[in-house]
Amino acid sequence: MSNTLTWDQMQDLMWPATWETLQMVGVASVATVILGLPVGLLLVLTDRGGQLENLALNRVVGAVVNIGRSLPFIILIVALASFTKLIAGTSIGWQAATVPLTVGAIPFFARLVETSVREVDPGLVEAVQSMGGSTLTTVRKVLLPEALPALVASAVTTVIALIGFSAMAGVVGGGGLGDLAYRYGYLRFQTTFMWVIVAELVVIVTVLQLIGDRIARRLSHRGGYRSPLGSLFGRSGTPSDDEPVAS
């Protein structure tokens, strides 16, 4: 019964699935960045010593984020079914998968944003405060621009995690590469096909990581940005801090 698929058959299955994955992950990524960024900032600003210090709010948001990160994604899909219908207008297809994907990725991304923003030297915030800058000014002129390389890296990590999550979208008929690998490769013993799909996913992930690293490096003027994968392929110059570089 298990006759191996031909290359043409594989392609006919793969391209629609690739497109589904890209759409699902693309929409979910954009929504995650837009919604997760403020949550991450809120976690930093409301913490002890933060400009909007509010420990009660900080704990509540922190708890919600932790719960969100603990819930298995498969459960999130089921639990959010009616919410999904409300937002996406449907409870099946790749469109329906974007809602639980986004909801699941927001806490993940928010924590990464929090870490990135915390890395910004508090002295820079203080400098802007000493110039008479407001909280909004410090966010716009210091926290976001200074954390930007790290934020880009966080976004890439999130997108890659979303590609992993999207394999489970098959539950709501979302399709995509992960689902294809599961149904054909695993359930129908098409091992070769499964590996072809895995190879495609590896290519997608690697390309995303390389693009992300390149952007992050270009945005970083700190003169020492390195990323583990980037340094395998690209060069990374680290000008010494106290030696002037001739221009």
Binding site: L124, E126, V142, P145
Partner: peptide, 21 residues
Amino acid sequence: LREARRRIGMVFQHFNLLSSR
């Protein structure tokens, strides 16, 4: 207070320049 601070300049030990600018 923010307006008053605009008339007081400050320099720091570790310079506190924005690396992104």
